[in-house]
């Protein structure tokens, strides 16, 4: 695994910098920030549902965090983190544990593989990826819940609401991805 991948892009290499030491310094900080983000997302999903709800649809902030992490991190095992984030979602939601985690692991793995062949640096591509991924994940989790008896909604309603959740989450993702793009931009343009 190349250390430059930890800088969030293939062009993130900074010549002359001790990359290994940077990674050691940054990894705990990143984990802490990620934990805080996941915690905030979980709190928001459990406390502010009435505020964020539009009709029957709310944004899935934990799924958004997981997908964005997979999109931003170039680690081949980033999907594991996304699966763990989905597990947090399973813990705060009713139904069987591990369903969201399993589907997120599969989805994250697929996205990690896809990134090697399809460039996802552009904002529009990232937003579309979030839209598609969250919609598919929500539909998969909902339909699995229907099979397991956790959900009693009709199949089509589950699919339609999943599309709504994907759309809403993609809308929320736009500013998040823009900010992350600005954060990564100096690394991409630094010329020593």
């Amino acid at each position: 695994m190349s250390s430059r991948r930890w800088y969030g892009g293939t062009n993130g290499t900074v010549p002359g910098v001790d990359v290994g030491r940077e990674r050691i310094l940054r990894t705990p900080m990143r984990l802490l920030i990620l934990t805080l983000i996941v915690y905030t997302a979980a709190v928001t999903e459990t406390s502010l549902v009435d505020v964020t709800r539009i009709g029957h649809v709310t944004p899935d902030l934990l799924a958004l965090t997981a997908i964005v992490y997979v999109l931003m991190a170039n680690h081949p095992s980033a999907f594991v983190v996304s699966g763990l984030i989905a597990l947090v979602g399973d813990l705060i939601a009713p139904g069987h544990l591990g369903v969201g985690m399993g589907w997120m692991l599969l989805l994250g793995f697929g996205l990690t593989r896809l990134k090697r062949h399809v460039p996802l640096e552009h904002l529009a591509a990232q937003v579309f990826a979030v839209l598609a991924a969250v919609s598919v994940w929500a539909a998969a989790v909902g339909l699995t819940g229907r099979v397991l008896g956790d959900v009693s909604l009709p199949w089509l309603t589950i699919v339609a609401r999943s599309a709504g959740v994907g759309l809403y989450t993609a809308g929320v993702a736009v500013p998040v991805l823009m900010i992350l793009g600005w954060i990564h931009e100096p690394h991409l343009t630094t010329d020593y």
């Binding site: 999907f79 591990g98 369903v99 985690m101 399993g102 599969l106 793995f109 397991l148």
Partner: peptide, 13 residues
């Protein structure tokens, strides 16, 4: 890792 994660998910379910 994926296989292990999926197995864990099934166990959790």
């Amino acid at each position: 890792t994926l296989v292990a994660g999926l197995l864990l998910a099934i166990v959790l379910a």
